[in-house]
Each structure stands twice: as structure tokens, then as C-alpha cells.
Design a protein around this nucleic acid. Structure first.
Ligand SMILES: [Zn+2]
Length: 803
DNA sequence: AGCCTTTGACCAGCG
DNA sequence: TCGCTGGTCAAAGGC
């Protein structure tokens, strides 16, 4: 009953609710105690849900209650009339006709009112429903906006075997270009920021003798920005799974029929998980995969096809939201709904409660709906007034007739169940209305809560206002009910519990988490033992199974020789241009960068990269079995740092750069010359333009030195190169002004810096040239600078990566 | 002498 | 607040 009466006045009720809400929200902010917080939160949510439901059904409630109330009133009226009639019959004097007419008019009015009530209810329902729909749509949209779907891409890539190191570029911007110039447009994909994505390559290789003999080759994946800068780079070894000849024979026998029929092929699919990377604000625009032959060899595997697979995983928070998608839909929708309702209530209340409140009596404290109280209200009040007047007249007649005191009369009337003490005593609540109301609709709420009613000025004196005031009184009584809450809270618990159940149900039916398929990565024979296995294991990539070590020694021998061949390969790769999908063809600078990276990574040697570094720390970091060394660029005012993890034998497992150099690479003359030939080699590689031309001769010169050095290194440990390495650049250096900006911004950034960087670029390239021709000059740098600007200003920032 | 590495101490962020 | 961890400092020593 109370809920019904409350729901009778939605606006008032909602106002109360808002008050409660505010009340509840304050503690949210003020009370940090988790205990209270949680309980309040639960209560609050339960409140919200219950309120939503009540809001939706409030029109029906109000309609029902109104109808019942009206029936009560009518019966009461008729009862009163009949009793009076009886009395009149006793005393003679008939007004029966008038009473019947009034009752008929009242019923007519009732229907009128009922219609209006229906109308208003329907209207309110529609409005609420619309709001609900809008809220749902908004909620779902919001959740979807916040939680992106993980990106899963699987695309064919094509290696360009005309290059010495075949590479394939997959571009997020659409399509990929394997061969230069061949692009195919795809839909635009991009990995949202914050996603951790894995890049793996699926190679379908014929089980040919050639491939079997080939053994290990190296796959390198580089994440490129739109400018062609390398964000991250990592390389993994790969090879055909080993099958000894008996096994192969058996397989062939077993699969003979399908093989002959062409149903199956003698192929192996190898999945190499090359790179994992967390997407940052430096967006990845393309991924380039390059194949490098094992050091000491130059042959590359035969491929049927290659597919690049990119799978991204959402960050933890979003992952949770995604798994609980439907729950979040519901909750966000509810919140949006509440907010919309509040908004409507605050700004367009009249729109929302166009008709309803007026019918049920204006809530005295609501300053709003004055205008709509018109015809019906006045009519009904008029009628009631008439009725009352008539009754009064009758009573007067009766009293005159009986010549009794007023008190008697009233007690008589009161005996019919209504308390009439004060009709004559002005200044208190008009009596009859109280009677009627209390008799009809509100038996209990009137008790004990009247005290503040007397404070209402409305009730003073005026009898004509009686109907209104009575209505008002009723309202107030409802409102004044000292504890409107208990029924709610009681039902709240129910609601909330139900809710939780629903929630649970929802959660059950969802949660499909994309799981990256485990990739089996096994290195059979011929895969050199030592570091390959080590590094891979340490990086917790995939299992490395050393099947057969018979060839290890051979490999070792090869390893001794490798470095030049690798370098040769690197250098040779340098000059080639691969067009990014939709992008400008990569610039030589980028190539150089990658080259250098490659040098540092794919083939693990020293970390020489053309810059001078001072080691300022070494730490054994957790999770990595090798110590991590911290280096800082020795150039004054250059804050670039790098972290290098290398195994005992000096092979680099991981390099992470931080910041960007604000200078060019130091040239041979200084310290670099004194160091090692590695540096020279790097420099030489840096000059990619000449790499091809002079690569061989240069290489010839270099390798010797390198050989000696590397040979020594390896000899020291008796191990070979690392097979898996990764290089990451971080632009997050606080010192570098370029932090977090797209590389294009470099140019516009700060002119002195930039010019210097540009100079550095050119300096580098020139440096390489200069490395060949020892004369080095700033003027030359500038000159090359100008050249470069003409050629492709877009890539101006590339050098910043200083690999 | 200058530069580098080594290495323990120190510090800041985080759970 | 404490302990852990990664990053840096700085003294000491080597080349
Ligand atoms: Zn620097």
C-alpha cells in the first residue's frame, strides 16, 4: 500500500529519491572505508535498480491506486448519502433526485479522469521506455567504445626472393606489399593502443631435401611506424621440423594414397612466434618480416606460402570488461538510464509528468505544474463543494430540527467512522475531507504524522479550498510518512539479490577469451645448441627441443666464420627498397637503421652501433638469466641510454634504447677507431648507399677484423651466436623532446634539436661515406642534409632511433 | 690524464 | 610502512 501510494506521486517520489541519492553519494566521497563503501555501494545499486523498476511501473500503480481510491470514495459517498437519506426519510424532506444526479456526474467524472490517467500513464510509459531504450543503446555503445575487440589478423605475405634477404611487409593501413609495388588493398586495421600483440609467422614449407639441408634460418620482424622507423624488432630462428628418414618413409607410406591423389602435400607448417609488442602511442603502421640465412650460408628456405598472424590481447582492465561484457552493458545502461532520468527530471520535468501529478493533486511543495490544473480539477472541486454545501444544509436542517448541540451532530457524524471535531473550529484541518480521505485511501498513514500538517498555511480557514486542501493533506500525509524507506529497503534486498543472480547468469554465458595457440617451436638437429636454446628458453618463448646434436660441431665451426657472411647479408639487404603499404617507399635511412638494429640483434655480436657508450650500471634483473647493463651515450648533453642484456659470452639477448641522440654518430677518428672494427663495420653499414657497391670489398676488409674478434669471443665460451634477440627503442625518455609524438613531429619540434638531428642523419650517412673517405665536415653534413630534405622529408626523424 | 668498467649503495615506484 | 625491483650514482680501480 505504501509503495502504491508512493508510486502514486512519481515526481515527488523521485525527488525524494534524488535526495536520497545525494545523501548516499556524499559518503561515497567522504568515506574511504572500504567496508562502508561496499555496503553503501550495494545499497545504492539496489536502490537504483529498484527505483528503475518502480519508475517504469509507477504510472500503472498510480492508475490502479487512483481507480481504487476513487471507487472507495464513491461507495463512501453513496453510503453517506444513503444514511443521510435515511435520516431525511425519518424527518421527511426528500432530495433523493439531486443525490443520484451527483453520483452520476461523479462517475462520469471518474471515467473522464480515468481516461486522462490512462493517457498520462501511457505517455509516461512511452517516455520512460524511450529513455530506457536510449540508455541501453548509449550504455552498449559506451562499453563498446571503451573495450575494443582484440585484433586478429591472418594475412598472406609474400617474400621477395629477388632480394638477398627476402622481406615482406604487412601494412596495417591496408594491404601488404611483398614485392615492391605490388599492393593489395585491405580494410584498415590497427591495433589499439595498450594492446599487447603477438606477431607470428606461419610458413608452409615443402619438405624438400633442400629445406631439410638448409637448417636454421633467421626470421626477423620489425614494427615500423608510418615513417619507417623501427619501433621494435625481434628475430627468431626457425627451421623445418626434423624427421629422420625412416620416419619420413613411414609417413610417406602411410600417407601414400592422399599424397598420390594430391590431397595432402609433403609440407610442413611452421609457426614462429617472432615478436610481441605492446602498442604505444607510437603507432605501428607496418610489420616487416625478413628472412636471413644462417650465418655462413646464403641459401634461404623454399616457401610455398607465408602467413603473418597478428593477435592482440587487450590490457587487463579491458579484458575483464570484455569478459563481463553483458554485465557491463546492463550496468552502464542502468547508470545512463538514471542519469537520463535525472536530467529529464531536472530540466524537462514538465515534459515527463505532463498530466499525472495534476490529477492526483499538486504536491504542495512542487512549484511546477500550476498551469495544467484546469478543467477537471476545478470541476471536481466544484462538485464536491456543492455536495458539501448540500450536506451542510441538510445537517443544518437536521440540527435545527432536533435542536441539539453541534457537538452532538458531529459526534453522530463521527460515529459513522469519521472524526469530526473541528469543522467549526477554524484553523485546523478541514474535517470532512479528512474523513473521506482517511476512510477511503489512507487508513494508517494518518496516524502520528500530522504535526507538521498544521504548519501548512493552506488549511487555514477557507472552506472553499477544502477539496484541495484535503487532497493536499492526503499528499502530505503520504509524504510525511515517517518511514517511507523500510518497505523499499526490504524489497531492495530482494531486488538486489535477484539482480546478482541475473548477473551471475549473464556472466556465465559469456567470456570467450582469445587464447593464443601454443606454438611449438622445435629445433631439431643442425640447430646450433648453445644460445639458441638458452636465449629462447630464457625469453620464455617456446620450447626448444634439441633433437640431435650431431651437427653442432659443424655449426660451431660455421659460427666461427659467420660474422662476415651475416654482415654481408645485412649490408646487402640494406639497399633494397620495400614500399610500405600505401606509404612512400622506405628510405635508405630507415634501411640503415634497421640494418644497424639487425646487426645488433639478429646476429649477435657486440652491441656497437656507432655511438660511444659509457656503462654506468649493471643489474641482474629478475626474469632474465643474464645481467642487464646500462649504458649512456657519452656525448655531452645527450641523454640517450640503452639497456643491454647479454649472455656470458657477450651475445646480446636484448637491447632497449631510450631517447634520441641529439648528435651524429662519432666518427672514426675519435674513440670509435680505437675500439673495434665492429664499430667500423656498423658505420660502414650505416652508409647504405655504398653498401652495395662497396659492400663486398668493405666487407672483406671488415670481416677479417671481425672474425678475429668474434672468433675470440666465441672461443671464449665455445658457444655460438644467439639465435633470438630483440631490440626495442623507447622514445619515452623524459629528456628527449620527441617523446610520445609521432615522428613527423620531430621536424616541427625544436629547430635546433631538429636541425642537429637532421644533421645527424646526414652525418650518419655521410659518416659512412666518410668512413670510407676519412674527411668529415659539418658542411658536408649540411649539404647532404639539404639533399635529404629534398628526397624525403617525411623520414626526417628516422635517425632518431639511432640503431 | 682521461675514460671506462665494476660494483655496492642509493633511490623511486609499486604492491 | 615495508620489502622488492629496476634504474642510477659514485667510488674505486683498470687501461
Ligand atoms: Zn648520443
Amino acid at each position: 500500500m505504501i509503495t502504491a501510494s508512493i508510486s502514486k506521486y512519481p515526481s515527488i517520489w523521485i525527488k525524494w529519491y534524488i535526495g536520497k541519492l545525494n545523501e548516499n553519494q556524499k559518503p561515497f566521497l567522504l568515506l574511504p572505508k572500504p567496508y562502508n563503501f561496499v555496503s553503501k555501494l550495494v545499497n545504492f545499486h539496489a536502490d537504483l535498480i529498484y527505483n528503475c523498476i518502480v519508475c517504469i511501473f509507477s504510472p500503472f500503480y498510480s492508475l490502479l491506486s487512483f481507480a481504487s481510491e476513487f471507487f472507495h470514495q464513491e461507495t463512501k459517498y453513496t453510503a453517506v448519502e444513503s444514511s443521510e437519506l435515511h435520516q431525511q426519510a425519518h424527518h421527511g424532506g426528500g432530495t433523493t433526485t439531486t443525490t443520484t444526479t451527483t453520483t452520476t456526474t461523479i462517475t462520469g467524472l471518474f471515467f473522464k479522469k480515468l481516461g486522462l490517467g490512462l493517457l498520462s500513464a501511457a505517455y509516461l510509459c512511452i517516455v520512460l521506455f524511450l529513455v530506457l531504450i536510449v540508455a541501453t543503446v548509449l550504455g552498449v555503445c559506451l562499453v563498446k567504445l571503451w573495450v575494443e575487440e582484440p585484433v586478429v589478423v591472418r594475412e598472406n605475405v609474400h617474400f621477395d626472393y629477388t632480394e638477398e634477404n627476402p622481406s615482406a611487409v604487412f601494412s596495417f593501413d591496408g594491404g601488404m606489399s611483398g614485392f615492391v609495388g605490388r599492393t593489395k588493398r585491405n580494410k584498415h586495421i590497427s591495433v589499439p593502443v595498450g594492446h599487447m600483440f603477438h606477431v607470428s609467422l606461419l610458413l608452409v614449407m615443402p619438405e624438400s631435401d633442400f629445406n631439410t639441408q638448409l637448417g636454421v634460418f633467421q626470421l626477423t620482424a620489425e614494427l615500423l611506424t608510418g615513417n619507417g622507423n623501427v619501433i621494435a624488432k625481434s628475430s627468431r630462428p626457425s627451421m623445418l621440423r626434423f624427421r629422420s628418414s625412416p620416419i619420413r618413409l613411414a609417413r610417406t607410406l602411410m600417407m601414400g594414397l592422399p599424397l598420390v591423389l594430391g590431397v595432402s602435400d609433403e609440407t610442413q607448417s611452421i609457426i614462429v612466434d617472432i615478436l610481441r609488442h605492446k602498442e604505444e602511442y607510437r603507432r605501428t603502421k607496418a610489420i616487416r618480416v625478413t628472412m636471413h640465412p644462417r650465418s655462413g650460408t646464403s641459401s634461404l628456405p623454399q616457401l610455398y606460402e607465408a602467413q603473418i598472424m597478428i593477435k592482440s590481447r587487450l590490457p587487463w582492465s579491458k579484458e575483464v570488461v570484455r569478459n563481463w561484457k553483458w554485465t557491463f552493458y546492463v550496468w552502464v545502461s542502468i547508470y545512463v538510464y538514471i542519469v537520463l532520468l535525472m536530467f529529464l527530471l531536472c530540466c524537462y520535468r514538465r515534459l515527463l509528468f505532463l498530466v499525472t501529478p495534476d490529477l492526483f493533486g499538486r504536491g504542495g511543495e512542487l512549484p511546477r505544474e500550476e498551469p495544467p490544473r484546469e478543467h477537471d480539477e476545478s470541476e471536481i472541486s466544484e462538485l464536491l463543494r456543492k455536495l458539501r454545501r448540500r450536506r451542510r444544509n441538510k445537517r443544518k436542517a437536521i440540527s435545527d430540527h432536533d435542536d441539539d448541540g453541534d457537538g452532538v451532530e458531529e459526534t453522530i457524524v463521527g460515529s459513522s467512522g469519521e472524526t469530526i471535531n473541528t469543522e467549526d473550529v477554524t484553523g485546523s484541518v478541514p474535517v470532512e475531507q479528512v474523513d473521506e480521505d482517511s476512510g477511503s485511501a489512507m487508513p494508517s498513514p494518518t496516524t502520528g504524522s500530522f504535526h507538521w500538517l498544521s504548519s501548512l498555511p493552506l488549511d487555514q480557514g477557507n472552506l472553499n479550498d477544502a477539496p484541495d486542501s484535503s487532497l493536499k493533506f492526503k499528499n502530505n500525509a503520504t509524504l510525511a510518512d515517517p518511514n517511507p524507506l523500510p518497505p523499499y529497503s526490504a524489497s531492495l534486498n530482494q531486488v538486489s539479490s535477484n539482480w546478482h543472480m541475473v548477473k551471475g547468469g549473464n556472466t556465465d554465458c559469456q567470456s570467450i577469451v582469445p587464447v593464443l595457440p601454443p606454438i611449438d617451436f622445435s629445433f631439431p638437429e643442425e640447430f646450433s645448441k648453445g644460445q639458441n636454446a638458452k636465449s629462447i628458453e630464457s625469453r620464455s618463448f617456446n620450447d626448444v627441443k634439441m633433437v640431435n646434436c650431431s651437427l653442432v660441431n659443424v655449426n660451431k665451426v660455421e659460427m666461427m666464420q659467420i660474422s662476415h657472411s651475416d654482415e654481408a647479408g645485412d649490408e646487402s639487404t640494406l639497399p633494397k627498397n620495400v614500399t610500405l603499404g600505401g606509404d612512400i617507399g622506405r628510405q635508405p635511412v630507415m634501411e640503415k637503421d634497421q640494418k644497424e638494429t639487425l646487426l645488433a640483434t639478429g646476429v649477435v655480436r657486440t652491441s656497437e652501433d656507432g655511438y660511444n657508450w659509457r656503462k654506468y650500471g649493471q643489474k641482474q634483473v629478475k626474469g632474465s638469466e643474464y645481467p642487464r647493463s646500462y649504458y649512456k651515450c657519452t656525448q655531452p648533453n645527450c641523454q640517450v641510454k640503452k639497456k643491454v642484456e647479454r649472455s656470458h659470452d657477450g651475445q646480446i639477448t636484448e637491447i632497449i634504447y631510450k631517447g634520441t641522440h641529439n648528435h651524429s654518430k662519432p666518427h672514426l677518428g675519435r674513440r670509435a677507431s680505437g675500439l673495434s672494427t665492429d664499430e667500423m663495420s656498423d658505420m660502414g653499414e650505416a652508409g647504405e648507399n655504398y653498401a652495395k657497391l662497396e659492400g663486398s670489398g668493405w666487407k672483406n676488409v671488415q670481416p677479417g677484423a671481425k672474425d678475429t674478434k668474434h672468433g675470440l669471443d666465441w672461443k671464449a665460451d665455445g658457444l655460438e651466436r644467439t639465435s633470438s634477440t630483440s631490440v626495442v627503442t623507447e622514445l619515452s625518455d623524459p629528456m628527449s623532446t620527441n617523446k610520445g609524438k609521432p615522428l613527423c613531429a620531430f621536424e616541427a619540434e625544436d629547430t635546433p634539436e631538429h636541425s642537429s638531428t637532421l644533421a645527424s642523419n646526414d652525418g650518419d650517412e655521410d659518416g659512412t661515406t666518410q668512413a670510407l673517405a676519412p674527411a668529415e665536415d659539418d658542411a658536408e653534413d649540411d649539404e647532404s642534409d639539404s639533399k635529404r630534405r629534398f628526397s624525403g622529408a617525411v623520414f626526417g626523424g628516422e635517425e632518431m632511433l639511432n640503431f
